[in-house]
Amino acid sequence: MLNRILVALILVPLTVYVYLYGDKSFLAFTVLLIGIGIYEIYQMMESKGIVVNKVVGIIIGGAIPLALYSSVLSNGNMLKKLIKNNIGYNVDMSKGTMVLILGIFILMFIRIYQNKVEGSSDYVAYTMLGVLYVGFLFAHIVPIKYMLNGSKWLMTIQILVWISDTFAYLVGVKFGRKLFSRGLCEISPKKSIEGSLGSIVFTVITMLLIKGFLFKDLNISGIHLIIVPILIAVVGQIGDLAESVFKREFGVKDSGKILGGHGGILDRYDSLIWVFPLMYYYLKFFL
């Protein structure tokens, strides 16, 4: 318990700082999380005898946020004016796709150079799965950061995910299986429908409080104040279950031990891996 508290006391303030005030530190934070997350999923794969190229995968995964940020650097002076005037900047997502293509090219070149045929499809597919699932999806944090009110949106998303996770657990412990006898999903038997519904309700309430008291200038209003938290709560829970699928398939309890009692990076950020892409496209096209 003490270990979990100490990790939270370090990780929470660090997250708040890089989301709200970080630039280079924000980029370093993102690259570090992606690198560790990819390493963890590769470790899970290797526990089942799956062969991946960890070095190439981690480098390619870390290169995705760097590539996205390069478009920010190339417009440095203009970007400062945009942020100062509260306008925002549209990051070029195609650069992330280019890195993915480069990754496939490099992996295939390695197999050709090694003159290996057997298992090449699995080698490329599983290595790129780690890059795509952790690196590319989580890297959507970068374009959100530099949108209109991007820093505040990142903090809002993080708070809503924290609330969703917390109340899914608390409501589930208190009322789980009392209204609905079956659980939410066999993949994670301890999760309950009551906990899932409680998560949604409290996430909506929190969104209203954030807009009313914390970030009054956040560019959201009307029905979006209800839709956004519902989407975050639902997709966040799907992200949590998605990681449970991987852990069950690979036969591990936690993705890693770097956060002590909190498990690994993927255990803490599994919801955000799904939520960041969702929110990027929602904010881009609807707000």
Rank of each mutant, 00 (worst) to 15 (best):
Y113E: 15
I10P: 03
T30Q: 03
L225W: 11
V245F: 05
R268G: 08
V51Q: 14
K247V: 05
S221C: 10
N77P: 03
C185F: 12
V18H: 09
G49P: 01
S94N: 15
T156K: 01
F26H: 04
Y281D: 07
I220E: 03
I87V: 12
I220D: 03
M93G: 04
L287V: 14
D270Q: 11
Y280H: 07
I265V: 13
K211V: 11
M98C: 04
I265W: 06
G88R: 09
Y126A: 13
I159S: 03
L100P: 04
K191H: 11
G195K: 08
V31N: 00
M44F: 09
L160K: 02
T166D: 12
A63Q: 15
I36D: 06
G176C: 08
G256I: 00
A125G: 13
E194G: 01
L184A: 01
S71C: 12
L154D: 02
M93P: 00
S192G: 08
H224R: 05
Y19A: 10
I101W: 11
I205D: 06
S47R: 14
R182F: 14
E243Y: 06
G103R: 01
G263F: 04
S164D: 08
G236F: 00
F202Y: 10
V72F: 06
E243T: 03
F213Y: 14
N219G: 04
A125P: 05
S271L: 05
V56M: 10
V161P: 00
I60E: 09
F285A: 05
V134I: 13
G135V: 02
K253L: 02
W162R: 04
Y69A: 05
S70C: 10
I10L: 13
K145E: 05
V12S: 08
G22M: 12
S94K: 15
V52P: 02
Q237N: 06
S196K: 09
L20I: 15
R4I: 15
I238Y: 13
V55H: 12
L225E: 09
L9C: 15
F285P: 03
G37M: 00
G57S: 07
G96Q: 03
N75I: 07
T166F: 11
K152Y: 13
L129A: 09
E40K: 05
V7H: 07
G130I: 12
